[in-house]
């Protein structure tokens, strides 16, 4: 098993998770401290929505729906697909009974969710190469989307390879063994995931590499907009 394979699948995952969690918490604390400081100083005719109202606005984006219904639908599709993908990864860690209320294969969506996600990311990315979005884009806007796209593409390929092209040796159990070993801080790599560092294990390494990269960037990038949207909505500046 090449070292690089191990580095990506074990230490880098740990580093990425720690940076992701610590960074998000750090920014989260700063954001909500700033929110408290600013709430005192805001004046104006509109009363900011309370927590529930802010949550409603953050999750359903009524303002976008009103002004840009098509973009709203695209954004909703993208974020929903993302949510489903995150859930499906949780199922790869361990079986979650609550999620099986609607019975499905693991990972969920049979590749369709992943495909939708890829198309949505492609849309966001292509958009950035055209005016007027191009004029307001920073370099990180492109890289973030590219990292997300690559993560999703390799993940999708991983899935398709397993179900279509007979990498039948790789079962969900192999992932569960790997991921739960990471969680219990006794990392082991099942042979099915490392075999020869070609084919399936090669794709897996790429998928995990880009996912790590995304997690590493997350707290420092505009990906914090989920929290920011809630905080800004609470501030009620309209």
């Amino acid at each position: 098993m090449p070292t690089i394979h191990y580095v990506i699948l074990v230490p880098m995952v740990y580093v990425a998770l720690v940076v992701f969690l610590a960074g998000t918490a750090w920014r989260g604390v700063r954001i909500f401290r700033g929110l408290r400081a600013s709430l005192a100083g805001t004046v104006g005719p509109t009363r900011p929505p309370r927590r529930i109202g802010a949550l409603y606005e953050t999750l359903l984006l009524p303002k976008v729906l009103r002004h840009h219904p098509v973009r709203w639908a695209l954004a909703a599709t993208f974020h929903l697909a993302l949510l489903l993908l995150v859930l499906s990864h949780l199922e790869l860690v361990t079986e979650i009974g609550a999620l099986q209320v609607v019975p499905h294969d693991v990972p969920l969506g049979s590749g369709v969710v992943g495909a939708i996600f890829v198309v949505a990311v492609l849309f966001f990315l292509c958009r950035r190469f055209h005016a007027p979005a191009r004029a307001i884009s920073a370099a990180s806007d492109y890289y973030l989307l590219i990292v997300l796209l690559l993560t999703a593409l390799f993940g999708l390929e991983l899935h398709l390879a397993r179900s279509l092209f007979g990498y039948a040796t790789v079962e969900v159990d192999a992932y569960r063994e790997y991921l739960s070993s990471l969680l219990t801080l006794r990392p082991t790599l099942p042979e099915a995931l490392t075999l020869d560092f070609v084919g399936h294990p090669f794709l897996l390494a790429l998928h995990v590499f880009f996912a790590n990269l995304f997690l590493l960037l997350f707290p420092w990038s505009k990906m914090m907009h989920a929290l920011l949207a809630f905080a800004l909505t609470r501030l009620g500046r309209r």
Partner: peptide, 21 residues
Amino acid sequence: VGGLGCFQLDACLRCGLCNDA
């Protein structure tokens, strides 16, 4: 930094939904 800055001055998604407003 302590107030508005930490969440308003680095929040814009540059998504352009506001362009034609």
